[in-house]
């Protein structure tokens, strides 16, 4: 989890993003307990106050629940987590499409390029297997 915070985005938002990423990837499953504020601060190399703010933000987003005296848990609200996944996928694709469009790439060439990249990845995976 430890890493740099090179981007000038607020550190707590970068950490919110990393944790969301971990949840979407299944590193934390629904109902899993997140590390305590102190442990997360040590792991991420940030201030405990920042982690407090991160957990508050995740709670506001409906992604975690804080149970008094027990800690912070990933929500078991399936539809909420599915919405998180979809939003992240949409964000990434939209930003990719925006980049490509800015470079002057036509929609059919974007699609074609994505298809070829996926094919390459597929054949690499076959070779590895």
């Amino acid at each position: 989890m430890a890493g740099t915070f090179a981007s000038a985005q607020p550190i707590y938002l970068q950490l919110v993003d990393r944790i969301c990423h971990g949840i979407v990837r299944g590193e934390w499953r629904p109902g899993d307990k997140l590390p305590s504020v102190r442990d997360m601060a040590v792991q991420a190399g940030v201030n405990p106050n920042t982690v407090q703010r991160v957990y508050m933000e995740l709670e506001r987003m409906g992604i975690v629940e804080t149970r008094r005296g027990q800690g912070t848990f990933v929500t078991e609200d399936g539809p909420r987590l599915e919405a998180l996944r979809e939003a992240r996928v949409r964000d990434r694709i939209e930003s990719f499409v925006r980049d490509m469009t800015e470079m002057g790439i036509a929609p059919e060439d974007i699609l074609d390029g994505v298809r070829r990249a996926l094919d390459r990845k597929g054949s690499d995976a076959m070779e590895e297997a």
Binding site: A8, Q9, P10, I11, Y12, L13, T50, R53
Partner: peptide
Amino acid sequence: IDDLRGREGL
């Protein structure tokens, strides 16, 4: 720090 980053992107 969060204010510097959040409001001014610094």
